[in-house]
Design a binder for these strands. Structure first.
Lengths: 351, 351
DNA sequence: CTGAAAGCGCTAACAG
DNA sequence: CTGTTAGCGCTTTCAG
């Protein structure tokens, strides 16, 4: 294969502008110690020739690769992709992260590794060796895997942990899950609900605990009971069915349920219908995540939106700051979601 | 910032195995002219040290970057992402392409450029200069933009055009849109429908024409009329409403409609309900694309699945073959979808 | 079949 | 403030 050469290199620009390579380098890296006049001249040459630096060459010589790695769990991601259940986590993650990367001249590379596999470290090491990323975005449950975070710390690669239990690296972002759960509770309480059930998510995710705590705290604040009103699922539809059936078949059943994700909310909705209950007439329902599918079911579900794109965008922004050695804000940074009202919540029936 | 160095380089492997750099290079590139014994010894060192070559260094010296670019239209992609209408094109594209890339040691980088902007060429040139991709996946409507294809040809970068009208480069993939439309027609004819309406998509996409042609041909084959039964939308929900209203408000209205994408099908479904018609009792409906949302509406829609992931995967596979200089199959390669039966099709009412 | 030398495009370190 | 020099890790080219 023919050797593929850069068509316009820093040399061409230097020759065109009549300066040294180094001066051009300083201009493209926006370094100090270049006279404005010089800078203008060089920039003019860059624009005229349409010069864009090669990221491979920059990586080779300098310390930057201009690559940020977005690490996701292989098994879960592939499963979700194949199931086509309408979750757009990958989409939101990718678009949010990619667009922010582009603003700073970075590229985002999406990578899958097995969290549970003994080979995590080997897989991650290989990705690091191949790509030499300047930063890594870690999504749950990776964000809490010490095999991953330790390796990153050791390689001195800054990482942004999204939804992690504890702060293992420089950047720690959450989506305010506890406050969002409390918001859902208050929304239902304001409608007059007193018996509010909750379906928790998988223990493997820190956010499951936060959502549950937020629920418990808000219920306590409102002076409402939670006994026999809290079940745990694993985020799957099937687990949602089981939990919903338990909650709805006992005595003193709830007039409203908050489900920790959309699939479990969908399942709850189906179970309610199956049991002859109307949503929202007999049962109000608030979902978590607000993936596109909740808008298309009957009734469209009131949901807590999980701001995935904003979070990914923020992760990249902070990563770039960290790479540049700039000071970071206090952690954790909280990107709060919001409650989207639709048609699955109403006042409870009296009696 | 500290200069970040590769922890294990080809030099370490060479020293460990007691051979020259070149021999190691030959082994990792699977070249001929290495004694099996040598190869084994080198491979052992590679495994022991956990060596993985740096793609930046490989790009610098050799001709390969091990990067494949997936090019999508900026405006449309961002619009679809923000609308959160439940389309999972990006997801399917990314996962299909990325997993196939990984199999061959490549990485997929997702990039957005403005098809309509005068700066397409500048944007694309910049991406090429920065990344030096070994291949590019082009999605509609990029695949038919000569500003893009010419530039790629000129740079001798092989590209896979998905859903392009004509073959501008080495790889040309379609999803058999005409045959899929015919399949939808035959499905409806088999149920007893004779007046079958069709809502075409935006002229900007070659596949809109193919789908329409497939419909017209299949209708002709069945000896059925198409006059006043064919409207054109632009793939948007709003355009679907307009088209559906036209089709359903005339005399001799259709007993079934095929919509060229899911949003227009959803719109048709809504219009039918609004007009007091039942789906599928009074109107059967077949949708195109089969994005997740069609499973969650009432009734769940029978749809032609568009095999986006398989297509992206195939594009990458063929690209890798092209990069290696291997022979390619005859073009276009057709990745056919299938008809997914759900609940929006029934026999027409008699009368 | 294997090795040595040269250099890809850029930046770090140092010298002026 | 600007230029020079020396590589980064790998593949290509050319010798053996």
């Amino acid at each position: 294969m023919a050797r593929r050469r850069q068509s316009v290199t820093i040399k061409h620009v230097a020759a065109d502008a009549g300066v040294s390579l180094q001066t051009v380098s300083r201009v493209i890296n926006n370094e100090a110690n270049v006279r404005p006049e010089m800078k203008t001249r060089v920039q003019a040459s860059i624009d005229r020739l349409g010069y864009v630096p090669s990221i491979a060459a920059r990586r080779m010589s300098g310390s930057k690769s201009y690559i940020i790695l977005a690490l996701n769990d292989r098994e879960r991601t592939i499963e979700a992709w194949k199931a086509r259940e309408g979750s757009d986590w990958v989409d939101q993650m990718l678009m949010g992260g990619m667009l922010k990367c582009a603003e700073h001249g970075y590229r985002l590379i999406f990578e899958l590794v097995d969290t549970h596999d003994d080979n995590v470290q080997r897989e991650l090491k290989a990705a690091i060796a191949a790509l030499q990323p300047d930063g890594v975005v870690l999504t749950p449950p990776h964000a809490d895997n010490p095999l991953i975070t330790d390796l990153l710390v050791q390689h001195r690669i800054p990482f942004a942990a999204i939804g992690a239990e504890t702060q293992a690296g420089p950047i720690h972002i959450t989506m305010g899950d506890d406050r969002m759960a409390a918001l859902a509770v208050r929304h239902l309480v304001a409608k007059g609900h007193e018996r509010i059930g909750f379906i928790a998510g998988s223990r493997e995710y820190a956010l499951s605990g936060w959502r549950k705590q937020g629920y418990l705290a808000a219920m306590a604040d409102a002076g409402l009971p939670t006994e026999h009103l809290c079940e745990r699922g694993d985020f799957s539809y099937a687990s949602g069915e089981v939990a919903a059936r338990k909650l709805l078949s006992g005595k003193g059943r709830p007039t409203a349920i908050i489900a920790s994700n959309d699939q479990m909310a969908l399942a709850t909705n189906a179970v309610a219908h199956e049991m002859g209950m109307r949503v929202p007439g007999d049962l109000s329902l608030v979902s978590f995540d607000n993936t596109p599918v909740v808008r298309f079911v009957q009734p469209p579900l009131t949901a807590i939106d999980q701001p995935v794109a904003d979070t990914a965008s923020c992760a990249v922004e902070l990563l770039v700051q960290a790479i540049r050695g700039e000071e970071l804000p206090p952690m954790p940074v909280v990107i709060e979601g919001s409650l989207i009202e639709r048609e699955s919540v109403a006042a409870p029936r009296r009696g």
